[in-house]
Simulated scan of single mutants.
Amino acid sequence: MKAVLMTAAGSPDVLKVQEITNPGVPVGDTELLVRLVAAGINPIDTKLRQRGTFYPEQMPAVLGCDGAGVVEAVGAGVQRFRPGDAVYFCYGGLGAHQGNYAEFTVVDERFVAHKPNSISFAEAAAAPLVLITAWEALYERGRLEPKDNVLIHAGAGGVGHVAIQLAKLKGANVATTVSSQDKANFVKELGADEVIFYKQTDFVQAALDWTNGEGVDLAFDTVGGETFGKTFPAVRIYGDIVSILEPDPKTVWKVARNRNLRIGLELMLTPMVQGLVESLQHHAEILEQCATWIDQGKLKIHVSHKFPLEEAAKAHQLLESGSITGKIVLLISDE
């Protein structure tokens, strides 16, 4: 089968389309053989390509955590799926288990969800990592409650655009930062109540003005770097701030401490890296619930760019150029 192999750590040029062994059948007792139709591209893919995977001794590697496709064969113990079912999931692509930049993959049924019926395979492939990340960050780390005021950084991005919608589904009020009028229009369509142009406006002051000087109940940092520490004074006393990135080593924690902020760190890849089966099953449960909301028209996935599998390197180049609205997807086979 065709797959995009990462032959070494480095620039996008290390991604090469090659023929590799099809996972084939028979599959394991609870496993599915999936014919992949599309694969999502995420920042973790570009980071692993640049610096090497979590398992450098297992090279070359196939990247890509997000996949969507059709079940081709099932193990003897599989209960929830049958051949022909459309599925989506976030599994593989970190170096140990084959990723989804390929024509086929094998994945345990416990980590897979039924694809939403109302969207394309491309949209489904764009969804899993960002949905799980935003869900865990807002609902579990941030303990978001109805009527809470939440500040979401980079609301037009991959994680940000679904975080806005998940926050609104919870009944929260949402402020978000953007860089352009086009992105402002986009996040307003998603339900954002307050749009902050961070390049022209002090987002801290804007958040305080929006909350009558109190600060937001929850801030969600999807940007990292200096943004994390700069957000502390925008959060109310005893409030929450959650980041999906490692805090800058130069972060000054005094304001967070003085305001008794609760700090949350979110890395949805941890269960895959650590082999936490129950947590991976929980990820599938999240995707099943999100599929229901998608089919009810309550949740949308925005795909801004699509590339054929052979142009994975170009897709990585585009993602690394920055300021992408929504998600980028690789198209592998016909739907």
Results as ranks from 00 to 15, higher is better:
P23D: 09
T292G: 11
G99Q: 07
G326P: 01
I164R: 04
D217P: 03
A154V: 12
N117K: 15
D193T: 01
V204E: 00
D45R: 05
K2C: 03
V174F: 00
L15V: 12
E285I: 07
K115P: 10
E109S: 11
H305F: 13
P43E: 02
M59I: 12
V159A: 05
N22Q: 12
P23L: 09
G92I: 10
N212F: 00
A206Y: 01
A154Y: 08
V303M: 08
H161I: 03
S120K: 07
H153Y: 04
I132S: 03
Y55G: 01
I294D: 01
K170G: 13
E57M: 15
I237D: 13
G191Y: 05
V106C: 14
I20C: 04
D209V: 06
E19D: 13
E123G: 06
E214D: 07
E335H: 10
A313Y: 05
P249T: 09
G92S: 10
I324Y: 07
T105Q: 10
A122S: 15
I324M: 10
G75V: 12
C90H: 08
A234S: 13
G67R: 09
H302C: 09
K115S: 09
A61I: 08
D66T: 13
V25G: 05
F220R: 02
T105M: 06
L33P: 12
I132M: 08
T30Q: 14
A3W: 08
A73S: 15
H305G: 06
V174E: 00
I294R: 08
G95A: 10
E194K: 13
F197V: 03
G229M: 09
R236T: 05
P271K: 01
H305D: 12
P308V: 08
D240R: 15
N258P: 01
Q58P: 00
Q281C: 12
L267K: 10
H97T: 14
I328G: 00
T177P: 03
A76S: 13
P146A: 03
R262C: 06
E140V: 15
Y198L: 05
R35Y: 05
T53Q: 11
K250M: 11
T211N: 05
R82K: 14
R236W: 00
G239Y: 02
